[in-house]
């Protein structure tokens, strides 16, 4: 499906600005520092990536799921819906939207449980507490919150076009990986995908020592924007150097704002009993 980025909801509704993001995160930033918040977001992006790889979906599905996840928390506090539930929900929805097919309920849950056990034991000692109906419900909230803006544009396609134009195939693997990494920053919420592609390509040129100055000069794009994106990605690499996930994540997860009740429970049916529910209402 072709479609035009400039007429899409991605461009018209979902390119946010820095101030927006900071404002929407105020509630979470009362409890967490900016850096801690970023670390949590990196952690959940890794979780989505691992689940996607384990399910053997295409990178396109993983990228879409990650952006959905970021969109939700760009507009809502982490305490609205447990990100541990939101992560598999985003993969579930993205797989349908990107025409990868419907992932069966049992496969989604059991694969996620496996991923949590084998790769994220250090973060979650308990069993995955949610079931399929929670995922379906969460999918509703996600759709609603995004106003059903489903179609996303990723930097991968423009990247392959630029590389073909540049005629330097050897830059593809590294730029591609930098794009994957960029999903752990806010750039996908802040800049159009073609600029992200150019920034990643530019970084790859510098790292591999290719001189593409004239090619970039002839593009007539805003190089300042490209440098802004580059700074976001470099900041991520800096942060990752000092981020020992295995050591820090439990503390971070403990401090993270949490929902008081799990998403699907109408007031009187909570397994915690009515008493507690009605208390929290008063």
């Amino acid at each position: 499906m072709a479609g035009n980025f400039w007429q899409s909801s991605h461009y018209q509704q979902w390119i946010l600005d820095r101030q927006d993001l900071t404002r929407e995160r105020q509630i979470d930033l009362k409890v967490l520092t900016e850096e801690e918040y970023q670390k949590l977001m990196i952690f959940y992006a890794n979780l989505i990536q691992s689940l996607g790889e384990q399910l053997k979906v295409r990178q396109q599905v993983i990228a879409t799921a990650t952006v959905y996840f970021k969109r939700f928390y760009a507009r809502n506090s982490l305490r609205c819906i447990d990100p541990l539930l939101m992560a598999p929900t985003c993969i579930f929805l993205a797989s349908k939207v990107e025409e990868f097919g419907v992932i069966s309920n049992s496969r989604l849950i059991s694969t996620f449980q496996t991923v949590l056990k084998t790769k994220f034991q250090h973060a979650f000692q308990q069993e995955f507490p949610y079931r399929v109906n929670h995922v379906h419900e969460c999918e509703f909230f996600l759709l609603e919150m995004m106003d059903c803006s489903l179609v996303l544009y990723h930097p991968y396609r423009p990247l392959t076009q630029y590389i073909a134009d540049l005629g330097q195939e050897e830059l593809l693997p590294l730029s591609w990986r930098i794009i994957n990494d960029s999903l752990r920053t806010d750039v996908c919420l802040l800049y159009p995908p073609y600029l992200i592609a150019l920034a990643c390509l530019h970084m790859a040129c510098v790292i591999q020592g290719k001189d593409c100055k004239t090619w970039f000069a002839e593009l007539s794009v805003d190089m300042d924007k490209i440098l802004e994106i580059t700074r976001h990605i470099l900041a991520l690499y800096d942060l990752c150097k000092s981020f020992d996930e295995k050591k820090e994540i439990s503390t971070l997860l403990n401090r993270m704002p949490k929902p008081k009740t799990s998403p699907s429970r109408p007031p009187s049916q909570g397994p915690n009993g009515d008493g507690q529910e009605s208390q929290s209402r008063q």
Binding site: M1, G3, S8, S9, F92, L93, K96, V97, V102, S104, N105, V135, H136, E139, F140, L143, C148, S149, L150, V151
Partner: peptide, 19 residues
Amino acid sequence: NEKEGFPITALREIKILQL
């Protein structure tokens, strides 16, 4: 079809008609 969550046919219609 509660098994597939939000129906894929509806997702397709939304996504295609938004385009």
